[in-house]
Amino acid sequence: MLKESIGKRSEKVKNTIERGAVRKFAEAIGDPAPIYIDEQAGAASRYKRNIAPPTFPVTFDAGKIDGLDLPSKGLIHGEQIYHYERPLFIGEDVYCWMEVKDYYEKSGNFGEMGFLVVIKKGESADGELLFTEERIVIINEAARKGMTV
């Protein structure tokens, strides 16, 4: 049933990159640098404004993929991959959606493990692609069995 989700995608959701959210996020990763949080430093930077840290897209709402209801237990985060066209700017609107890129199973020491590859993309208001985030989630056998009940 996870295999059937390959290619499914969510509807785009508008996210506004808020100054306070970026400050809290930068503090939470121990990186409250002026380029992220200080307005004057942002204005004086090569970007002419403040930018967001590269892992900030974890905070974005990218909607929901129909039929993809992952268990809350038995998931392991395997990999996370970002690609940027440019940094994200504080104050801008980013339109995000998700797509199931792949699903496959491999047997290992802990039984048959499932690998779900989900991508999240973000576009500017003009439809220009800003970033891609790829997340590989490993789902153990027990958790997958729970899903089919």
Binding site: I51, P54, T55, I76, H77, G78, E79, Q80, I81, Y82, H83, Y84, R86, P87
Partner: peptide, 10 residues
């Protein structure tokens, strides 16, 4: 410059 690609395995 900026971080263009950032790929991590946990």
């Amino acid at each position: 410059g900026f971080i263009q690609d950032y790929a991590i395995r946990f």
